[in-house]
């Protein structure tokens, strides 16, 4: 009789201790950023480290939202990230399906070629890319960033999705074909649902990359028409004045849409989906 609660406690311990430790490491710096963001300026630099402000203030958040174009930066980041997701996901899914399911000559070379485009540091590609964007007439508009980000997101997500598609047994495709499904139907009803977690992961990847990308965003944008969050935040680091209040408040807020986005995506696509699908 006494063993059950002990075992239950033990099971809980096995869950919550590692979870707590892992989350502490993952969240502590962010928490520190939050604490910093609610410190009044005169409590920022103190010889004895202050773990909680004596007079917490949300002034930094108010100033950020009222006196800076932070929300415009955020809107621009949203436009760019969502569009990049849409473009890159469609393009990469098609390519990944092709790599995973259709035999053709030169596949290995082409897959490798996709990766080779990613081996150069982007800072050295900026100048010629700038010329391309200019001749397309899209400098200082979201499409410039969508295009630039897609060149990065497509090869990476193609590789990821190819991997996820490959993990799905080919027998399922064959079974579907025998049942009379066309290629497109097989893709729709077999491959896509089964690789939903992979699609969600790739989507998350593209979104975050695009949301936080800095060097293209800096170079291809000029003002509020297209400037995104990372560049906007950087302007709070002046030559002799560093606006810690705005920077940290901005950092805290910037992460939130992604957290929200992922909660949404993981609920839509991951939770409890696969077990049933495989059986069905």
């Amino acid at each position: 009789m006494t063993r059950r609660p002990v075992r239950r406690a033990w099971a809980a311990l096995k869950l919550w201790v590692p979870l707590g430790a892992w989350l502490t490491f993952v969240l502590a710096p962010y928490a520190w950023m939050f604490i910093t963001s609610i410190k009044p300026p005169n409590e920022l630099y103190t010889k004895a480290v202050r773990y909680w402000p004596g007079q917490p203030t949300f002034e930094g958040y108010r100033l950020l939202l009222e006196t800076t174009p932070f929300l415009t930066y955020m809107r621009n980041s949203g436009i760019v990230a969502v569009s990049t997701c849409a473009v890159a996901l469609v393009v990469a899914t098609a390519a990944a399906y092709c790599f995973s399911r259709i035999p053709f000559r030169g596949k290995g070379v082409m897959l490798f070629g996709f990766l080779v485009t990613q081996l150069f540091p982007s800072v050295l590609l900026v100048l010629p890319l700038f010329l391309i964007m200019r001749s397309l007439g899209i400098l200082n508009t979201p499409p410039a960033l969508i295009l630039a980000h897609s060149t990065f997101a497509v090869p990476f997500s193609t590789w990821m999705l190819t991997g996820f598609f490959n993990a799905i047994p080919r027998e399922l495709d064959e079974a579907a074909t025998i049942d009379g499904c066309t290629r497109l139907q097989t893709f729709r009803y077999v491959l896509l649902p089964l690789s939903a977690p992979g699609v969600a992961a790739a989507l998350t990847y593209i979104f975050i990359y695009s949301w936080n990308e800095f060097i293209y965003a800096l170079t291809f944008t000029a003002d509020l028409r297209a400037r995104t969050l990372p560049v906007g935040l950087q302007t709070f680091m002046g030559e002799f004045i560093i606006r810690w209040d705005l920077l940290t408040a901005g950092g805290v807020i910037t992460a939130l849409p992604i957290v929200f986005f992922f909660m949404l995506v993981q609920r839509q696509l991951i939770a409890g989906l696969t077990a049933g699908a495989v059986k069905g």
Binding site: V26, P29, N212, Q234, L247, G250, V259
Partner: peptide, 30 residues
């Protein structure tokens, strides 16, 4: 679901702030 979302925070934080916060936390004086 909430924890999964929160777990994304480090990745979701812009690099400039990751760098600044870690520089601050690793500082040799304070």
């Amino acid at each position: 679901a909430v924890v999964r979302g929160l777990a994304l925070i480090p990745w979701a934080t812009p690099s400039v702030l990751v760098a600044l916060m870690w520089t601050w936390m690793l500082d040799g004086n304070y």
